[in-house]
Design a protein around this nucleic acid. Structure first.
Lengths: 230, 230
DNA sequence: TTTGTATATATGTAGTACATATTTATAAAC
DNA sequence: GTTTATAAATATGTACTACATATATACAAA
């Protein structure tokens, strides 16, 4: 049989609500709305678009889910500031994601960690360094794998906090389950947290105290190099 | 007056649909569903939870918005693989986000770019290097700011592509509008793309050809250093 | 000035009816 | 026997109505 042209696209099968969503999206975009601005009430929108309140509500519900608008009884709908990571967080489920995507997220985490040096040096404080010091010491005294891993997580968490960037910090926190999943389930990725850390963390800390961002990034590369076998 | 204790939290004001969402979320989580698995139809869920189909539909609509489930007529609902970046993309609107968040996103992009070296060296190909070569040459011949900026964007885009990580690549693409917004609107951030690039890009490329990841990351730091004044 | 009460209003929930698309079964045609 | 038409069944999609619920507003009472 002659193969169908790949250019043959399925006819657009948008539901009513899909169209309403697009219309409202364009309306919101072109209206230059700012957070706090209110939009017409459901009945007005339904009337303006010539559709039922049911359909309008479902379209609005999507925006509400994304955090673009908020609604309160008798106050109508207002534009809100969406939480850019919140939506991602809600779907970051290892059960649902495919392996390739998780591998890529894993890599993204590594990349971030290796590029973090400058932020850390820019915002490090004596208090934070002291805190890292105690963690590294605990790490050096750890006697079993569980303790190692716990301290490792804490060390990196404090580093991220030290970056002074709440978005990056949250991002990393979200990615932790993926990280664990990869280490446990993926073939070819060795969990080296036990063997490398207790010297490596010390080195990172010393560089952070007296070294340069370049040195730090380099040491971090070394710290994470085993994960790069993916 | 005695100040109210900050521990005094507002009483939980969850709507019916909110509760349904939580219930279904738990149901989905504990059920170990995989993409492709189907879930009970709306009427069954409504019946099981003792609520109207209307409310069930609104709760399901949220999951649909997040990409966790999909629905088709007469086929019911099936678990799907969510697009982790898709939801973020839909709300990445400079108009709606606050300046602090955008600054942090801007930083995140810088961090990623400075930690990208290893991936690039691991996956570089002759073809990609050749492509970068032509871009750098164009860049060196550029005569006005518009050309510089265009080439700069292209150079970085090819770098990201070279990383072989589609998630990172998409992520960067999504962040571009934020990047542009920051450069244009934020005080204290100088747009130095014109003055630094034509030498800096060449250096990056030469390192990528014959150098090491460390050298590359270092040069990238230099390439981006002006943005770190935030 | 505060506190209570009534009223209007916009969203939230329920229920019914029907539209629409897709599967399944069955019959007809070659 | 394989394909093609046709019909019935089914689950989601849309519309409409009615009422519940929370909140703003106005006004009265303390």
């Amino acid at each position: 049989m002659k193969p169908l042209s790949v250019k043959l696209k399925p006819i657009e099968n948008l539901t009513q609500v899909d169209k309403i969503e697009l219309t409202l999206q364009e309306y919101l975009r072109s209206g230059n709305f700012m957070p706090g601005d209110s939009i017409p009430k459901e009945l007005e929108l339904a009337d303006a678009l010539g559709v039922s309140r049911t359909a309008i509500r479902e379209a609005l519900s999507r925006f509400k889910t994304l955090g673009i608008i908020e609604s309160r009884k008798n106050r109508g709908m207002v534009i809100s500031t969406p939480d850019i990571l919140g939506n991602m967080e809600r779907v970051l489920n290892p059960q649902l994601l495919d392996d390739e995507t998780m591998r890529e997220i894993f890599e993204l985490r590594l990349v971030i960690e290796m590029g973090l040096g400058d932020l850390l040096f820019k915002r490090k404080t004596d208090a934070a360094l002291a805190k890292l010091e105690t963690i590294v010491e605990k790490c050096e005294k750890a006697t079993n794998k569980v303790e190692y891993i716990k301290n490792d997580a804490e060390f990196h968490a404090v580093l991220y906090k030290l970056s002074g960037n709440k978005t990056i910090q949250r991002f990393q926190k979200m990615l932790l389950p993926i990280f664990e999943y990869i280490l446990k389930r993926m073939p070819g990725v060795a969990d080296t947290r036990e063997t490398t850390n207790y010297t490596s963390h010390r080195a990172l800390l010393e560089i952070l105290k007296n070294g340069t961002p370049e040195e730090f990034n380099g040491q971090m590369r070394d710290h994470l190099r085993n994960y790069f076998t993916i």
